[in-house]
Amino acid sequence: MNNSQSPPIATDSATKPKKKSLGQKEIKIPFLDSGKPKTFKTKALIQFYRGVASMLRAQINTADALKYYADGLPDKVMADALIEIKEDIQAGISVYDAFKRSKRFDDMTLGLVKAGMDSGKLDTAFSDLAERAQTNMKFKKQLRKIVLIPSFVFPALICAFIYSQARIVPQIKEMVVTGDYEPQGPVRFFFTLSDFVIKWWPLGIAILIAIVVSFVVSNKLRQGVLVLAMSKIQILRKLIQGFRQVTFLGVIKLLHSNGINMAKAIRTSATAVKGTPYEAELLRAADQYEKAGVPLAIAFTKYTSVDAQVVHMMAIGEKSASMSTQLDMLVEMYEIDCDQYMEDFTNILNFFVMGGAVSLVAFVFLSVFMPVFLMGPEMMQQAM
């Protein structure tokens, strides 16, 4: 079998200290460092998944596949991590536990590795991981393309706005507010705004920096913002739920098609969506299905928040003994839907980002030139 493990060669190798290559000491920043090893870059992971999958399909055992891939790998940190995993496997530790001990892989990777072990098709699991990572990287690239320019433009525009309100507008105000002239309408508004910005801009910048830093550092805050955004933005909710559903459905499909009972397949699929609401829901549904004898479709209906389409197709698969076919169809359907949701969401985000940038530019322009254009007519009207 292509995912077979090499026999143990050293019974104490699992307890010996891990070695690090020379020159690979990681620089840690106390404020930002979480004490955990960093996961690898997505592009490197895609290449790793594909490379290992091809070797496993060629009947090379897992430990040797990791050794061959690590040999000569330019990324020495990744090479060292793979060698450590290989040594753990050779010491008798399961592939799943060896990957988990490295702390270099996310929950989805660990869940699919476990699914591959249980099904006897570890090569398929790594191929699926490559596809999932490719999709995630595509989505991240689209978001990065949209966000990159505004991330430079907005700070520059904010600085320009503060400078115009704190330096330019006060000079204009000093020149024109003489004698009995009292600014009215828009002119008065912009002069008042200038006074407000001069008084409060340091505090505003400090609050903005604190929000950005908190968002970067705090995972709970990011998750809270994500939940709030999902509750307000339907297309984002569909996109994220689609990604999660295609992930656990892919695990269930992989296991069920290789003779693993449905309850165990569902429990393993919960590992692939760890940290999301689906994790607890899937575990509860599996318990009700196995221990209470609740039909699969009813268990998913009562104890999970999956789409109605998932429940419907599972009910068909359960009644007609075609569960594998229905799972294949669901995975393919959600992959297509996710691509469409991704395109729609990036288009909407691009529209709002560009709209915000244009609005801020227009406001900076108006705050500087509007008082100049309107002062003359106002002064003439007050003089009459």
Score class of each variant (00 low, 15 high):
Arg222Trp: 08
Leu239Ala: 07
Leu56Arg: 07
Lys67Met: 10
Pro7Thr: 05
Cys338Leu: 10
Thr42Tyr: 08
Ile252Asp: 00
Val372Thr: 06
Ile298Glu: 14
Glu332His: 07
Ser164Tyr: 13
Ile252Arg: 00
Ser6Glu: 07
Val331Pro: 04
Ile60Lys: 05
Ala362Asn: 09
Phe369Trp: 14
Val52Thr: 12
Leu366Asn: 02
Gln165Asp: 03
Met329Asp: 03
Leu110Ala: 06
Lys291Gln: 13
Leu360Phe: 14
Thr135His: 03
Ile211Phe: 14
Glu281Met: 02
Asn2Arg: 08
Lys253Ala: 14
Arg284Cys: 04
Asp287Arg: 05
Lys319Asp: 13
Pro295Met: 11
Val273Trp: 01
Arg57Gly: 02
Tyr303His: 15
Ser34Lys: 14
Glu84Arg: 11
Asp123Cys: 14
Leu203Met: 15
Lys319Gly: 03
Met333His: 09
Ala65Pro: 11
Met137Thr: 00
Met354Leu: 14
Ile29Asp: 06
Ile9Ala: 01
Ala91Glu: 02
Gly317Arg: 11
Glu343Ile: 06
Leu330Met: 11
Thr124Asn: 08
Met375Ala: 12
Ser194Phe: 12
Cys338Met: 07
Asp180Pro: 03
Gly120Pro: 11
Lys220Gln: 11
Thr39Val: 14
Ile149Cys: 01
Arg167Tyr: 10
Leu143Trp: 04
Leu56Thr: 14
Gly23Val: 10
Leu296Asp: 04
Gly355Ala: 13
Tyr96Met: 04
Pro155His: 09
Lys43Ala: 15
Ser4Gln: 13
Phe31Asn: 00
Ile85Glu: 00
Ile298Thr: 14
Asp12Lys: 12
Val213Asp: 07
Gln90Lys: 12
Ala81Val: 13
Asp88Tyr: 06
Ser102Ala: 15
Phe31Glu: 03
Met55Asp: 04
Thr192Phe: 04
Met384Glu: 07
Thr42Arg: 12
Ser127Cys: 02
Ala265Ser: 15
Glu26Ser: 11
Val372Pro: 07
Met313Lys: 05
Val372Trp: 03
Pro17Ser: 11
Leu56His: 09
Tyr289Thr: 12
Gln184Leu: 11
Ala229Tyr: 05
Arg244Phe: 00
Gly224His: 06
